Computed example of a mutant assay.
Amino acid sequence: MVNNVQQRLTVISEPNRFRIVELLGDGPRSVGEIVDALGLGQPQVSRHLRLLAEAGVVEATKKAQQRIYHLRPDAMRELSDWAAGFAGLWSARLDRLGAFLDDETKQQGV
């Protein structure tokens, strides 16, 4: 799982691919729609989509002459699960920070 997560995060970290993932978060889109939304050339968008597909983040279905891309739910779930593992860590750290600030405020008599 870690290798998949690392590969997917690396691929998604490129700004245009990140924007594509955000667009597809709203629902499936054709290559043409992605080109229009990003203002990039079709070859650039196709290259980004190919890299996202190789990382397992997106997949395409054919509809007549178009390729319609959508996010792969299992890949996004895997990324979400990985990130959720840090929620407890940050929650505990923020709780400690809050307690520290409360103590500081009491000591200063504010």
Rank of each mutant, 00 (worst) to 15 (best):
V35G: 01
E14S: 06
N3Q: 10
V21A: 13
Q107D: 15
R8W: 05
L51G: 10
A75L: 01
G109M: 00
L24M: 01
L9Q: 03
L101D: 10
A64M: 11
A99T: 15
G41K: 05
Y69F: 15
Q42A: 12
P43M: 07
A53N: 15
V35S: 02
N4F: 04
D103Q: 15
Q65I: 08
L101C: 07
A92T: 15
V11M: 00
A99M: 10
R8P: 02
L101Q: 10
A53W: 06
D26T: 03
I34P: 02
Q42W: 03
M1Q: 07
A64P: 05
N4P: 03
Q66S: 15
N4I: 02
E54G: 01
F86A: 09
D36I: 05
L23E: 03
Q66Y: 09
A60V: 04
H70N: 15
Q107T: 13
F100K: 12
D36V: 06
G109V: 00
V5G: 03
G25V: 00
R93Y: 09
L40H: 11
T105G: 07
S13M: 10
I68T: 03
M1S: 09
Q66R: 09
A53F: 07
Q107M: 09
S91W: 13
R47W: 05
E54W: 00
G27P: 02
G27W: 00
L38W: 01
L49E: 00
E59Y: 09
V45W: 04
F100P: 14
H48F: 04
V57S: 02
L38S: 01
I12R: 12
F18C: 10
D26K: 08
V11W: 00
V2Q: 11
L24Q: 02
F100N: 14
G27D: 00
A83V: 13
I34E: 06
R50G: 14
P43R: 11
T105I: 12
I12Q: 12
F86G: 15
S80N: 13
Q6Y: 11
T10D: 11
F18K: 06
L71S: 06
I20Y: 00
I34N: 04
R67A: 08
P43K: 11
I34Y: 03
M1C: 05
L94H: 08
Q107W: 13
K63P: 08
P43D: 11
W90D: 09
